[in-house]
């Protein structure tokens, strides 16, 4: 079975081809691609996605040596995301399905991330604890099967990736913040200062707004502004922040593996690319004899491989969608089951 995946929920345009369990292509638009097709395009535009989907599809087909008519299933992201970009990918997927007379599945982008561990050779075992950590999301989930997901908690304010970006900006490091904080942290002392870690009523919830404010206050109180901080000072603050941002994730893994019968731990989303986080989680997994699955970099950020995979998984479970499926900007509130006893 050959599945075509289409992802356009935010900044990235991506097309993937999955043949049964084998990923044949996973093309993600880059600045290079923008240059090749259509010059400079605003990053967030629906038009950029529109210009990219066809060339990306051609590239994916030629790389896989597969013809369009050989595709059995088309899976496209329907949400959550920006409505304009979503509509581009979804309409493209539906049009292809209609014209080629193929089956169609609308995929939830977050579910794509949640099951992205299955793109790896070493796959997670159910039930697994899944931390979705990205620029837009921070979720702690108990994934019981291909259809059952229980929400343990989530961020009550900023997403973790957003905290990385904003702290990088406060320190004058630039954008995107994740890789820069990681780079500066390598030489810094994580014990330089202790930024507070939020304690919330639900121990599986997260808050990253407070850490951001603490970093701001720390810079103001000690240096007035980041402009007069020297390199070592920036490295130290970055390292101390990174430690405080990662700790709540490690705490969640410790708590969840004690409370629930968890077979594996899976960290997904853009922040899963963070080296320190990967190391710490691997170490924790070793201590507790837990299988740790963290997708490789290409599956951490937004990508169509995970959309194809989730589409194929749903299809094999008997799910079929018609062409009336619409795009949705936000997740429905009842997407995940709530933990029993949690108010």
């Amino acid at each position: 079975m050959i599945t075509l995946g289409i992802e356009t929920s935010c900044d990235e345009t991506s097309i993937a081809i999955l043949q049964d369990g084998v990923l044949k292509a996973n093309i993600i638009s880059s600045q290079e691609f923008h240059k090749d097709y259509g010059g400079v395009v605003p990053e967030l535009s629906s038009r950029a996605h529109l210009q990219l989907v066809l060339p990306l599809l051609r590239k994916a087909l030629s790389q896989s040596e597969i013809e369009l008519k050989e595709i059995d299933l088309i899976a496209a992201t329907a949400g959550p995301g920006l409505i304009g970009p979503l509509l581009v990918g979804l309409s493209f997927g539906k049009s292809l399905a209609y014209s080629l007379k193929k089956d169609f599945i609308a995929v939830n982008h977050i579910e794509g991330h949640i099951y992205s561990g299955f793109l790896m050779n070493e796959k997670p075992n159910f039930p697994y604890l899944c931390l979705v950590v990205s620029g837009g999301h921070t979720l702690a989930l108990l994934v019981e099967s291909e259809s059952e997901i229980i929400k343990l908690g989530g961020t009550i304010d900023d997403a973790i990736g957003e905290a990385f970006d904003k702290v990088a900006k406060l320190l004058g490091l630039g954008y995107p913040g994740g890789p820069l904080i990681q780079k500066f942290s390598e030489e810094g002392d994580p014990k330089f200062t202790a930024f507070p870690i939020a304690q919330l009523d639900n121990r599986y919830d997260f808050s990253f707004s407070g850490i951001k404010t603490s970093v701001l206050r720390f810079i103001e109180n000690n240096y007035k502004s980041s402009e007069i901080m020297n390199l070592a000072e920036k490295e130290n603050v970055a390292a101390a922040f990174q430690k405080a941002a990662i700790e709540p994730l490690l705490r969640t893994i410790r708590n969840a593996t004690e409370e629930f019968d968890v077979k594996s731990v899976c960290i997904v989303g853009g922040v899963a690319a963070n080296k320190k986080l990967r190391e710490e989680v691997e170490m924790l997994g070793e201590q507790r004899s837990l299988k740790v699955v963290i997708p490789k970099m290409e599956f951490c950020g937004d990508n169509a491989a995970m959309i194809a995979l989730r589409g194929q998984m749903l299809y094999k479970n008997g799910v079929r969608h018609d062409l009336n499926e619409n795009a949705f900007p936000r997740n429905p509130i009842n997407l995940f089951r709530q933990r029993p006893g949690l108010v």
């Binding site: 920006l82 304010d157 900023d158 997403a159 957003e162 707004s209 936000r330």
Partner: peptide, 11 residues
């Protein structure tokens, strides 16, 4: 939640 990444949230 914060719309920084999503640009627009609809409630």
């Amino acid at each position: 939640d914060s719309p920084t990444f999503t640009i627009v949230n609809e409630y």
